[in-house]
Design a protein around this nucleic acid. Structure first.
Lengths: 195, 195
DNA sequence: GAGTAATTATACATACCGGTATAGTTACTT
DNA sequence: AAGTAACTATACCGGTATGTATAATTACTC
């Protein structure tokens, strides 16, 4: 008793706390390494609430990735818009944004790539969310490339995707110092002839 | 009875069969997804033999990665040597080699990066093997870069590492078609002023 | 004030996890 | 012929996995 909650409608709904706890633990420890009991415990929630809200661990994983995708897209667009400039400069800004994201701390690679690694089966609902995230970024880059007058926007977008993914991996394994900026330098060669 | 083995010294020793089974299953399904029972069953070996030979699952994981690293290094060096050419051409050949490795089938990304993703704790013996593999490749590229008269071989090697890692991820997620060749095209810009 | 949705608390079911123990069997070595 | 290394067979241990069942409690709505 005292100040500990008992039941009823909480100020911060259980679903939100569960998703927050799952997001942190899934990303930091790995999806398969984290059990639903541990998530429920960290969220101060019973397992029943977790299953009432999400249905299954697999669905919770997909929800985690969807929420992460939403946060990440908003953040990237905001960072790029904030810096402004031409389409060419905005393409390069995506690498500055990546650098900022990495330096927020506890970076452990791209959460979507990590999820795809841990859940290799095609039917898993998480994989669709991963593909969505990759498709969206590719489209975003392609649109900027077209706006900048690229000869082949699709091709340029795919090249920049390789640089983004490479910078993510290189950064998580400390293969090079400041991988995002190094990727940006390479990217600047690719966009050199853009307006 | 019949032709099924019973005991004694087998033609193909148990350790080899275990490592072979573990390698396939760890890479394809993921390390945490595969249990020791399943490995022993696929290798036609009892769990006791597995533990007599490797001591623990963690040690088996490290052995899997070491064997994979050995195979991969030999294969890469051989592919690059076979193609011959100047240092500049050999740097680009590493991407041709990567393409060949990817197209051997059942490609599911870099096994070492995947292992690091699944085993994030620093103390795990597998992580040292992963870092070894990355350090070796970086050194190999750096040596070729120096041989080619690069202004800053270290920096060039790190850039090429980003391209290699990016091509691996892009290929495993089908982000672009022929990611290795696309990475090679980018690399050719980076080595343009080499001898 | 009655009803309902959201939640807690607790216990359980079934399966698999990594790892160990004990005993028996075969093949090669000397 | 004896000894030993490499294995098989089988059973077991405690822990943890996802998921379910049942009942009590609280807060909000009408």
């Amino acid at each position: 008793m005292g100040s500990t909650r008992k039941a009823g409608r909480p100020k911060v709904p259980a679903a939100g706390r569960i998703l927050r706890a799952a997001s942190e633990m899934f990303y930091r420890e790995g999806i398969r390494a984290v059990g639903v009991d541990a998530i429920a415990a960290k969220a101060n929630v019973t397992k029943k609430s977790l299953y009432d809200n999400f249905g299954s661990k697999d669905a919770l994983i997909a929800a985690y990735l969807r929420a992460r995708d939403e946060r990440w897209r908003a953040w990237l667009v905001d960072e790029v818009d904030r810096r402004g400039g031409t389409a060419k400069e905005r393409l390069l800004s995506t690498f500055d944004a990546l650098e900022g994201w990495i330096e927020k701390g506890n970076f452990r690679g791209c959460g979507f790539v990590n999820a795809a690694t841990e859940l290799p089966h095609d039917g898993h609902p998480a994989r669709a969310v991963v593909m969505d995230q990759k498709s969206w970024l590719r489209g975003y880059l392609e649109d900027l490339a077209a706006e900048g007058g690229a000869e082949n926007p699709e091709s340029l977008a795919e090249q920049l995707m390789i640089l983004h993914e490479g910078a993510n991996v290189a950064s998580s394994l400390n293969i090079s110092t400041n991988s995002a900026q190094r990727a940006r330098e390479i990217a600047s060669l690719l966009v050199a002839d853009l307006g």
